[in-house]
Design a protein around this nucleic acid. Structure first.
Lengths: 307, 307
DNA sequence: AATGGTCCTTTAGTGTGACTAAATAGTGAC
DNA sequence: GTCACTATTTAGTCACACTAAAGGACCATT
């Protein structure tokens, strides 16, 4: 296998026309250069330099190797450039997973902003429930997970992942438009103790738990009449007058079902916490940092809107 | 500057999926492989391998470097192939210089035969007098010199060049077709003692000397009446009846001037010696060796024809 | 929960080879 | 002929590449 270092030395000799000039250029002694060329001659079995007067003259083999060396060194330079581009975040790939309601609301804005800054970074967004997203993150299948978790800022577990809190997503009371309490700006949960409730089945356990806990704090156990697998379906059920529900603001999205109203919970609001998580190994990379920042800004925007 | 050896190690790790498999493939210990990758991480500033279960998983940077490494290694392989082709004589360049009469007779046949065997070797033939050809050979401007010399086989000087005797080129007596001796198969020079002689001026001194010496051996000093700068002109002068001449067989070529006849010299024939010379540095190269062989064969052909 | 096995890494140690310095040899210029 | 310049050779030193052995993390098994 040709040694690239030796080729570099030979190239310097051929291009500068003498061993000593090459040595000066490479910060070597002429002896070192001569030994490199000798080794290359031994390794290739070709005479590379022949004496010419006081100096040397490259053989045809040396000229050929010199030409080839340029191509090899160019390939190495390209590799360095590509790596530098990757390091600076100009190129690359970022695979995200978000839970369903984030994937359709909070995340797209952040992705758009990111893409403007890093047009050559390939983005890949998939929608997964938090548990699966974290598993994929750990396995390296994704680079960034946007999840809902039971804990808030300061409560993140030390499980080997790097986490960043994005948003406290408050649950809103969703009532049929004709409900007696629909006219109020905010609703005391205790006043819904006798209503029938709609439950969502797809969300993580602790989301359902958060709803139950809020009701318990208000002094009752919610009576679940129906179960829907997605929040939009829940809104449909409520609009049909089948019951009331607590739905996270992100899940409500910018427009609510025409047959329902969403009202703040009076007093101690139930929330689900929205987090971004990544692996420590990639946490410092430019694209990851940039995406985290854009997510944070998007979340702030939501928080301001939703109050 | 990226280190190709390290890239090779990384490539093995990525392609084989584990440090130990790469170590086995490279005849290293896992420790050595690990240290190589660590060094590459330090040198590039990029994390390349991250833990994944019991093993490792390459990062995006590692995958990129691996891809680039393939291109670099391919370039090195191409360089090796090109060098091998040069060494085997498949490609390359061969610059020859021949003295005028060889360049127009002996050499072209050898070149044609060579080109059949080495179609990708670029041939460059120039015509120079021996002295200049040898100078160009020493300076590296040509690779092979075909010259006439005063010495025969065994008499080659030890002047740092590699020489090969090709041919003893005998001088022939060139007479006007109407000359009294034109009917003889061979001519005793002594019978031309009273003729007028034609001299050629462009040939090396010792060629003229060879003629003079032959005459002196025959017992007379030739009386030069005319001087021509090329052998064809000499033939023209002889045809015009201006005198007689001794002309090397190679210079006569396959067909002589219609007004002259060429006859062998009776007894001790004057000759000029045809040699090929090259530099020791390139004497062993395949194209040089091949060309020398073809020249030898062409010379043998001439000797048989003319002898 | 504990144990064994696998994989990777770290540390220490050793040998090779990369480079310098000094001496040698060859060439051209004065 | 001597000097100046160039390249090579030799000897010597230092750094690096690798091995061996120990340590640590993880998974599987009991």
């Amino acid at each position: 296998m040709l040694d690239v270092r030796r080729l570099k030395v030979l190239k310097a000799v051929v291009e500068l026309g003498s061993v000593s000039a090459a040595a000066a250029a490479l910060n070597f002694t002429p002896s070192g250069v001569s030994q490199h060329v000798s080794a290359l001659e031994r390794e290739t079995g070709c005479l590379l330099l022949e004496p010419a007067g006081r100096g040397i003259r490259p053989t045809d083999a040396a000229l050929l190797l010199c030409e080839q060396a340029s191509r090899i060194l160019a390939a190495i330079q390209e590799a360095e450039d590509a790596l530098a581009a990757l390091r600076s975040g100009q190129i690359g790939r970022l695979r995200l997973a978000a839970f369903p309601t984030a994937g359709s609301s909070l995340v797209p804005g952040a992705l758009a902003a990111f893409q403007l800054l890093h047009p050559k970074v390939a983005l890949d967004l998939t929608v997964h429930e938090p548990e699966e997203a974290i598993a994929k993150l750990r396995s390296g299948a994704i680079d960034l997970a946007i999840t809902v978790e039971p804990y808030g800022p300061g409560g993140a577990p030390d499980d080997g992942l790097v986490r960043r809190h994005l948003l406290a997503d408050p649950f809103r009371v969703v009532l049929p438009r004709k409900h007696p309490l629909a006219g109020r700006r905010s609703v005391d949960l205790a006043m819904l103790a006798d209503d029938r409730w709609i439950r969502v089945s797809s969300s993580p356990d602790y989301c359902q738990q958060a709803v139950d806990d809020a009701c318990v704090r208000a002094g009752f156990q919610p009576a679940y009449a129906m179960e829907a697998d997605e929040y939009p379906t829940v809104e449909g059920f409520v609009a049909a007058g089948l019951g009331v529900a607590l739905v996270p603001e992100l899940a409500l999205g910018p427009s609510v079902h025409i047959g329902v109203v969403a009202r703040h919970v009076k007093g101690d609001q139930p929330v689900r916490q929205v987090w971004a998580a990544t692996r420590p190994a990639i946490a410092e990379q430019a694209p990851v940092q940039a995406m985290l920042e854009f997510l944070r800004q998007a979340a702030k925007h939501f928080a301001t809107d939703g109050g």
